[in-house]
């Protein structure tokens, strides 16, 4: 098994949270992804062993959900929304801008493993359409200009922690609702920032 001891320990802690082992597959897959940026065959094998099902059963689950990536992702996962509210608020333009900037088509990752681009379905930011997420941290009220600036900033600064508030202040516009609180915690890596997966960090 190629997960180190601390990951296995964390995995076992997650498994304990549930009445039945198998329920932990979801969080364990997030955990696997926080390690490699995607669900490797190796992680699949580890998870199958941890919860006692076959590898293909794990794969069957992991491929069902679009957030579990089957290929390695870049440091920043750029997910631009294309669903109805964004669609009628010009999300096409935002998509084109991101594609141009990164030179990527849908679900592609650049050579430097910096960006992965995807056009996604509704991210619950319809009031702030068009919107996107960087590593699942939301920016709303985008304009083409600001989207380019955001991409440039990411490329130049390469922040380790992605914080929604910071991006929203610098590059965002109309919001779905008043976010009110200035939050300094965000995501590390192309996975949801969540304590359980050790993917949340405060900005120093």
């Amino acid at each position: 098994m190629s997960w180190n001891d601390s990951m296995i320990k964390q995995a076992k802690k997650i498994i304990k949270m549930y009445p039945q082992k198998r329920s932990a597959i979801g969080p364990l897959l997030h955990l696997a992804q926080s390690k490699d940026g995607y669900i490797s065959d190796d992680s699949t094998a580890v998870i199958s062993e941890l919860v006692g099902i076959t590898e293909v059963q794990v794969k069957s689950v992991s491929t069902f959900y679009s957030m579990y990536k089957q290929e390695p992702t870049g440091k920043y996962l750029l997910s631009v929304c294309k669903s109805i509210s964004c669609e009628i608020n010009n999300s096409k333009e935002i998509i084109d801008v991101v594609k141009d900037f990164t030179g990527l088509n849908n679900n592609e990752t650049d050579e430097n493993d910096l960006f992965t681009f995807e056009a996604v379905e509704c991210i619950g930011a319809c009031g702030g359409a068009p919107a996107m997420q960087i590593n699942y941290e939301t920016v709303e009220g985008l304009s083409s200009e600001n989207t380019i600036k955001l991409c440039e900033w990411l490329k130049k600064e390469q922040p380790d922690v992605i914080i929604a508030e910071e991006m929203q202040d610098n590059f965002g516009g109309t919001k779905s609702f008043d976010w009110a609180i200035k939050d300094q915690s965000g995501t590390t890596g192309s996975v949801p920032g969540f304590q359980t997966f050790n993917t949340t960090k405060e900005k120093k």
């Binding site: 959900y65 590593n135 699942y136 941290e137 949801p192 920032g193 969540f194």
Partner: peptide, 10 residues
């Protein structure tokens, strides 16, 4: 909670 809602989940 849907996975994309990282901040709300936090």
């Amino acid at each position: 909670i849907r996975g994309e809602y990282a901040k709300p989940a936090r």
